[in-house]
């Protein structure tokens, strides 16, 4: 079946890389896939896979999503009811939480129980920027993560504090062991940028496309 990947565009900086990485991966694995950047609800309704990127502050991202007519309803319908595979990247992952505590407290999508909090590393720099390894602690998911202990590219100052430990797929250590991959049924979130994480990033994208 042809895969139709919708990457949600809500006025962010660089999301071309996300699109290019999905295209490259599909081509290399002979997957028949259309990968589009879109803010059109109809295109999202017709998609098979949904990707939510995210950069900048939690509140501006959730406001950006809300500002597009019908976007939240469409996402909820496609992800929660129709159970389409969903991948949130960086702030796109954090938006899955009930709330974000950046520039005040703001409601998130509330799809995975938790809260977004600021990292407070002792004697370490913020943002947490650069390559760090990901330890897979839970393989009980449909999506494959053949990436245990490999390095991925991170850039963030806030993390997703998961309330339910069974939603944590992998953790990463930056003074604190924070959830770097979360999941719940068809919903996945990664704190790092797979589209910026060289071959291992493409491998993760491939696992998602296979769902």
């Amino acid at each position: 079946m042809k895969k139709k990947v919708a990457i949600i565009d809500y006025g962010l900086g660089n999301i071309v890389s996300a699109q290019q990485s999905f295209i490259k991966d599909a081509r290399e694995h002979n997957l028949n896939a259309d990968v589009v950047i879109t803010k059109d609800v109809e295109t999202i309704n017709n998609s098979t896979h949904i990707v939510l990127p995210g950069q900048g502050a939690f509140n501006s991202c959730i406001e950006g999503l809300k500002s597009i007519d019908g976007m939240i309803d469409s996402l909820e319908n496609n992800v929660l009811n129709k159970k389409k595979p969903f991948l949130g990247i960086c702030v796109g992952m954090q938006l899955l939480a009930d709330e974000g505590r950046e520039n005040g407290t703001h409601n998130g999508l509330g799809w995975i129980k938790g809260s977004t909090k600021k990292l407070k590393p002792n004697n370490l720099k913020l943002p947490h920027m650069g390559w760090n390894n990901v330890n897979v602690i839970n393989k009980n998911f449909d999506m494959d993560f053949p990436i245990d202990n490999l390095d991925f590219y991170f850039v963030h100052s806030y993390y997703f504090d998961c309330f339910d430990k069974k939603n944590i797929i992998a953790t990463t250590d930056y003074d604190l062991k924070f959830p770097s991959i979360v999941g719940k049924e068809n919903i996945y979130g990664v704190q790092f940028h797979p589209e910026k994480s060289s071959n291992q990033g493409l491998r993760l994208i491939n696992s998602f496309l296979k769902l």
Partner: peptide, 8 residues
């Protein structure tokens, strides 16, 4: 470059 290079 963004078509071919997947690092920052």
């Amino acid at each position: 470059t963004a078509e071919h290079v997947f690092i920052p």
